[in-house]
Design a protein around this nucleic acid. Structure first.
Length: 552
RNA sequence: GCGCUUGUAGCUCAACGGAUAGAGCAUCUGACUACGGAUCAGAAGGUUGGGGGUUCGAGUCCCUCCAAGCGCACCA
């Protein structure tokens, strides 16, 4: 019996109690919180439903708990149900009902952990979106890992997710990039406000190599434009390749520039003007964003006639909504959190609901440290760490896992000294090793005649088996919660617990018989549990975009 | 000055408002001539930054103070 089934059973019990007049008026909860108690003496599962719902039904918590317990024990799967403390209900399942889930998990296979909570939701997830003026740094790498993993998790719950990269190929930063390339091609110093570094020289050279034309000899403006278009294309191709090698592929690479070329920006402004949220002042065009919670109004078209950055955002958001996305999620770094109020104001100005149609996730930045001392990213000091550097040092799996296992609300410290030592203290190896072990145990079992021809769940009674079973069945709930809260790190933490439970079980309970013994029902039954653990670890690692190797 | 995020074990971090706050690393002590020791068992380590409040119950919610990071443009 799974916690989900237990939850449904309790809801039915509440309905029946209400029907029989034992409870007062009150709406029934759709589900009940079922938890694994920390203390084993509190049974297999516990619920606080009596405390949560007592007020609702006009009874006191303990007597509601008593009523529910009375009905629970009548279920065949429930061995014991007791009231504890202020009104907790502690439930112990029969060994048979607890063990049965091993088979359920194996039979669900690659579908186990997947749900339908978000079916029908069309969702746009925008992340990374780094400017194509340089390679992706460690900060952007974090969003790549988290964003892709979140997409996988949302998809596991039935959402239709589009991974999108907003490509800022318009505006002053790109101009600086183009001027820097041109200067490099001319063997000149980088402009004051420009970009420098080996990659600038390389791209400048590639631009020159890519054409028979003598770009340097062109008039200043044409030369800059030539370097802009070719340089951005090259830089972007490089970024795309890095991301691909990192296991992250976007469905849509959206070009900011296209919004200006297609007239989408003008249309967005016209739309807002029709809605009465635009005004002219001091020679500029403004959005009355202060009416929608922003600190102040925002300039959209500057007095020199150029569009401000937010103009692109207006059109881009409208474009996403026009493409049918119910929910647009933006992942931004903490250095852009000041944008949230104006983005939300924009959403409201279009008549949408901030927080629903537009959702913004703010992730804290990644700090570089060496032996505990903070290190500033600096090209001159050689302390810039790019996505490629990180992958080269620790590999894709370890990099992705390290970046995804912490909440995005916490600043992450990456210790360069630790990276250089290439130590194996990354918990990903613990989890992957557990998976490899399930695979090798299965191989050994097959060679010794242990197969899945028998399943007797009541034999799975060792403490470590009960713990493992209880942990395995939680994947669906963990995935649902991770999707709901947009928190992929929950999956990683959960997998570490599963791996721990599996290793402990492995240490206590043999799947294969000892030499001289023959394969028994217990061995065959345990093989189901072993394989169930493999399913959970494999599916969970899949949600993180981390491989599940069969041997290491 | 205002705003956002954070403050939990020596370090890096967990903990749908639930019972005795948990892992990993580091430290110490143990465990294979039997399914992979990248493992397991055990020890030690905490006034959850300080102080108030809300309630059956607060690391979690509210107020306040302290500290850190990041923002407060007709820059992008």
């Amino acid at each position: 019996m799974t916690p989900t089934e237990l939850s449904a059973a309790i809801v039915r019990i509440l309905a029946a109690l209400q029907c029989s007049g034992a409870l007062g008026e009150g709406s029934l909860p759709s589900e009940v919180v079922i938890e694994r108690p920390k203390n084993r003496e509190h049974g297999d599962w516990a619920t606080n439903v009596a405390m949560q719902q007592a007020g609702n039904f006009g009874v006191n918590p303990r007597s509601l708990a008593e009523l529910v317990c009375g009905q629970l024990v009548a279920l065949a799967e429930v061995e014991k149900a007791e009231v504890a403390g202020p009104g907790f209900i502690n439930i112990t399942l029969s060994a048979d009902a607890a063990g049965a889930i091993a088979k359920q998990i194996v039979e669900a296979g690659s579908a186990f952990g997947f749900g339908v909570a978000m079916t029908g939701i069309k969702l746009n997830l925008e992340f990374v979106s780094a400017n194509p003026t340089g390679p992706i740094h460690i900060g952007g790498t974090r969003w790549a890992a988290v964003g892709d993993s979140l997409a996988r998790i949302l998809e596991s719950q039935g959402a239709a997710v589009t991974r999108e990269y907003y490509f800022n190929d318009h505006g002053a930063q790109i101009d600086r990039f183009a001027r820097s390339l041109l200067a490099a091609a001319r063997k000149q110093e980088a402009p004051e406000d420009g970009y420098a570094g080996a990659y600038i020289d390389q791209i400048a050279q590639q631009v020159l190599d890519g054409t028979a034309e003598d770009l340097i000899a062109l008039p200043e403006e044409s030369a800059q434009e030539a370097f802009r278009s070719a340089g951005v294309a090259l830089m972007f191709a490089e970024i795309r390749e890095s991301l691909h090698d990192f296991g992250v592929d976007f469905d849509v690479y959206f070009h900011e520039n296209s919004l200006y070329e297609s007239g989408a920006v003008d249309r967005a402004i016209s739309r807002l003007r029709e809605l009465g949220h635009i005004f002219e002042a001091d020679g500029a065009t403004w959005l009355r964003s202060s009416e929608f919670g922003d600190d102040r109004d925002r300039v959209i078209i500057k007095s020199d006639g150029e569009a401000a950055y937010i103009a692109g955002d207006l059109a881009y958001y409208l474009d996403k909504r026009g493409r049918g996305f119910d929910r647009c999620i933006y992942m931004l770094g903490a250095d852009h959190h000041g944008y949230v109020p104006r983005m939300m104001a924009m959403c409201a100005a279009f008549g949408d609901t901030p927080g629903v149609n537009l959702e913004i996730m703010i992730g804290q930045l990644v700090n570089l440290v060496r032996d505990g001392e903070p290190v500033r990213m600096s090209k001159r000091a050689g302390t810039v760490v790019t996505m490629e550097d990180l992958v080269e040092i620790v590999g894709v799996d370890a990099a992705r896992y390290a970046l995804v296992r912490s909440s995005i609300n916490s600043q992450l410290d990456i210790d360069l000294a630790l990276l250089e030592k290439k130590t194996n203290d990354n918990p990903v190896f613990y989890v992957q090793y557990a998976h490899a072990r399930t695979a090798q145990v299965a191989v050994n079992a097959a060679s010794l005649g242990v197969d899945r021809s028998e399943f007797e769940p009541s034999l799975l009674t060792h403490e470590s088996e009960e713990e493992l079973l209880a942990k395995l069945i939680e994947l669906p709930r963990v995935a649902t919660t991770a999707a709901e809260f947009r928190e992929p790190h929950r999956v990683a933490r959960y997998l570490e617990e599963v791996a721990g439970a599996y290793h402990r079980w492995y240490d206590n309970c043999r799947v294969t018989p000892l030499i001289g013994q023959s394969a028994e029902t217990i061995h065959r039954t345990r093989l189901w549990l072993n394989d169930a653990a493999g399913v959970v670890l494999r599916n969970g690692l899949g949600l993180l975009g981390v491989s599940a190797p069969e041997r290491m």
